[in-house]
Design a protein around this nucleic acid. Structure first.
Lengths: 224, 224
DNA sequence: CTTCAACAATCAGAATATTCATAATACAGC
DNA sequence: GCTGTATTATGAATATTCTGATTGTTGAAG
């Protein structure tokens, strides 16, 4: 997955860059419109994170160009509060999603994933960690070519933890992301623990999974 | 579900209109305050999407009127950024949710669904039809005080059909609203039919349910 | 009035999800 | 180091959801 980060604030750009690389994307940074347009025309990106206020012009123009030529590219617009002037007020720009700064990197990652998935429908989409390969499009997992049968919930949990590897994920986060409406879920139940246990049991059959940690009082973490 | 879209930007209005129709809502557009107030007084809407900057007045006035008369109607205010800060910051308008333009249509749809649900859940926390009582807050159903044990999916289907009574609901609509991400669901399965059958069986034990129709080639409908 | 094909209903059973009771473990305070 | 408490892990029981095969039904075409 190739992502183009169009952001003139270098500090922020690098922060996003590091994070996205960390969760498995291949990224490139463009600091202005010119670079962005050049990158887009010469390379094939799956998604673009687009800041609108750029030094040499309006990110809006980049978006328009992209929309004309690259229909399969996902665009997430990153707007600073107040940056939207009268000219674009009320217009739906045609981006696939919007994020208002400041935002949580985990949220960016989640939305990016959702948007790419939506745009591509089902294209190549896989994660790998410690010899395990997760094929996101058809919910298949394998360890060195040996297929492992996970249930949907087990797969969801595994995937979410891998997407957020090296980061502790709380039970609440898992509930929100996998079960959706948190209010419907009985919170004084240990169903997540049970799913995690079942998942671990299946993974452990193939190799030791000491990288799949329990962080007491917080949640679970998968380390690279 | 009937939605009134109050938005003077015709392009945006149509874009929202198309999207919401597509996900199963019945929509109508009003381009100004006058039309909006007329629509609201003559028709029964479940929710309104309200732009504040309208040509013939302030959307705020529409909201106030609605709040006085139609307490069960959900209102989502669509604000351009800045609009909120300058004029109404700190004011409690009585809207159920706010969305700042530009926004992703999928987010609009998600919030709309949540808000309608919240409204229906808190102001009307129960639905009744043909002697059955649905208590939405705790997923309980009874027929003349006799409790009926439904599973969550059965309850969801029953509730959604009752909320949309006298309207045919397709299997696709049920799938989208109850299962969420439609792409994850195997569509060449008849799981909805199975749930409907199980639901009917439980309801039928207590009384005849000839009002629970199958509309061939379309879906299911519950008639008042 | 038949026949056919598409659609829906039904059923059993497999797969999955959740609950519950209990055991193991970690950690703080002594 | 102990002890007690809170947290997590575990196994088994129960409940729910989904699949796939089969049967029934409908309505259009002949």
């Amino acid at each position: 997955m190739n992502i183009l980060i169009v952001e003139d604030n270098k500090e922020l750009a690098v922060e996003i860059y590091d994070f996205l690389c960390n969760v498995g994307y291949v990224c490139k940074i463009a600091h202005n419109c010119g670079d962005a347009l050049e990158e887009v025309s010469s390379n094939d990106y799956d998604a673009m994170l687009l800041d609108l206020g750029l030094p040499d012009g309006d990110g809006f123009e980049v978006l328009k160009t992209v929309r004309k030529t690259k229909s399969k590219m996902a665009v997430i617009v990153l707007t600073a509060r107040g940056e939207l002037d009268d000219r674009i007020n009320g217009l739906h720009l045609g981006a696939d999603d919007y994020l208002t700064k400041p935002f949580a990197l985990t949220e960016l990652s989640a939305r990016l994933f959702a948007v790419i998935r939506r745009i591509h429908g089902f294209t190549v989409n896989s994660l790998s960690i410690h010899g395990f390969l997760l094929q996101l499009q058809d919910y298949k997992v394998s360890y060195n070519e040996i297929p492992i049968s996970l249930t949907k919930k087990e797969f969801d949990i595994f995937q979410y933890l891998v997407l957020n590897k090296n980061r502790v994920i709380t039970r609440l986060q898992l509930t929100e992301h996998i079960w959706g409406d948190i209010l419907e879920v009985n919170s004084d139940s240990n169903f997540i623990d049970v799913h995690v246990r079942n998942l671990r049991k299946k993974l452990d059959k193939h190799t030791t999974i000491d990288w799949f940690e329990t962080v007491r009082n917080v949640g679970y973490r998968i380390n690279e």
